[in-house]
Amino acid sequence: MSSDEVPEHRVVCHLDRLLEERGMTLAALAEATGITVVNLSVLKNDRGRAIRFTTLTAICDVLGCTPGDLFSVRPR
């Protein structure tokens, strides 16, 4: 693998399910956390490559969940 290639990850984000369980929209979460809708959408659709601890903390605070609820690793 060259240094330019990005390794595939198997992390799956469950933001859509958590939002649905809480009856919350992406825009409302964006408003509450201060994270842009665009970034939240990237996260929700598993297109993100990394997440800052500050972002994770803000989402978990608003949704009342833990990082383990938000993410899981897909089996090989």
Binding site: T25, L26, A27, A28, A30, E31, T36, V37, V38
Partner: peptide, 8 residues
């Protein structure tokens, strides 16, 4: 228009 539209 939704809140998401406004944010975008």
């Amino acid at each position: 228009r939704s809140d998401a539209d406004d944010s975008a």
